[in-house]
């Protein structure tokens, strides 16, 4: 494989990892409370700035990863408890508008506290070197993002498919009333879904900063939107679908820019949405959702 193509693929997989981490949480939240959570992307920003604060405070990196997961989880649970829980049972439009309001509130608070000035964000120097394998090489940052994301997603799948909590979350997502009849405290289960989904989004913010080198209070918008697209591609409500949708989106974006002549690179996002429309035309319920389990 040529170095160029290899580099593009690694780059696409790293970007796809970022999208996948955000999309999974987006999908989990939609799956369990049928909420299109427009504030989900802002957890990415919260994760990125928390990382910056922890780096400044001199916290070692492995611990930062743990703290950022925890901060994301706490932020997600807080939003669910004070905003989304009280309006549960209201119409989907109400819910959607509430998430928009939360997003704007988070962004404006961040702008006030942090100012709109972009901040530099650096992984430690050794993370920024390139590592070679048999004639090709890639950035260690990208490789670390890809590997850590796979580990996190692996952990998530263990929780969702192998634990009592995960089983209760899947049951609640499918049939909330029946889950209550099993004695599931559904509010706690929903809270857990928000915690896990938001923790993953926050970590994606840590990676986002490391990959792009700069962060600002509005950086959550793009990943939030892309997560939505990734979910629609993969089938909203399906965790595996959201993950694959994220990778497909990341890879195709990078390959679109990398393999076509320079003049096209400005059409990157146009391409993303064209892809979305084409997929919706071919498979309205998403690529990875069988029609029998189609979600509303």
């Amino acid at each position: 494989m040529s170095q160029y193509l290899f580099q593009q693929i690694i780059n696409g997989l790293a970007l796809g990892s970022l999208y996948a981490l955000v999309a999974i949480g987006f999908s989990m939240i939609y799956g369990i409370v049928r909420l299109i959570n427009f504030a989900h992307g802002d957890l990415v920003m919260i994760g990125a700035f928390s990382t910056l604060a922890l780096v400044t405070a001199g916290v070692p990196w492995p611990l930062i990863l743990v703290f950022v997961l925890a901060i994301g989880a706490i932020a997600g649970m807080t939003i669910e408890t004070i905003v989304f829980r009280p309006i549960r049972g209201a119409s989907q439009v109400t819910g959607f508008i509430a998430t928009l309001a939360v997003s704007i509130a988070i962004q404006n608070s961040a702008l006030m506290i942090l100012s709109g000035q972009p901040r530099n964000f650096l992984f430690p120097a050794f993370m920024r070197q390139r590592v070679g394998f048999g004639g090709v090489n890639a950035s260690l940052t990208d490789i670390a993002i890809i590997v850590l994301t796979l580990l996190l997603i692996g952990g998530l799948f263990l929780v969702v498919y192998r634990t009592r909590l995960g089983r209760a979350m899947r049951a609640t997502a499918e049939n909330l009333t029946a889950a209550r009849l099993m004695g599931v405290a559904v509010n706690r289960t929903i809270l857990a879904a928000f915690a896990i989904g938001s923790a993953l989004a926050a970590v994606s913010g840590l990676f986002w900063g490391g990959k792009f080198g700069q962060i600002d209070p509005l950086l959550g918008f793009v990943p939030g939107l892309k997560a939505f697209v990734a979910c629609v591609i993969g089938g909203v409500g399906s965790i595996g679908g959201a993950m694959l949708g994220g990778y497909i989106l990341g890879l195709s974006e990078v390959l679109f820019v990398g393999l076509l002549p320079q003049e096209f690179s400005g059409y990157r996002d146009t391409f993303v949405f064209l892809l979305l429309i084409v997929i919706l035309l071919i498979r309205p319920s998403g690529l990875f959702v069988r029609h029998t389990e189609e979600r509303a």
């Binding site: 089983r167 209760a168 899947r170 049951a171 499918e174 009333t177 029946a178 009849l181 099993m182 599931v184």
Partner: peptide, 26 residues
């Protein structure tokens, strides 16, 4: 007090074993 609801309301996407485990949730 256990309620076996109208229309069965089983968890379609869960396996049979997982459905039974859900019954034993408490």
């Amino acid at each position: 007090l256990i309620h076996c609801p109208e229309g069965r309301q089983i968890f379609q996407s869960l396996s049979v074993a997982e459905n039974l485990d859900m019954g034993a949730y408490t």
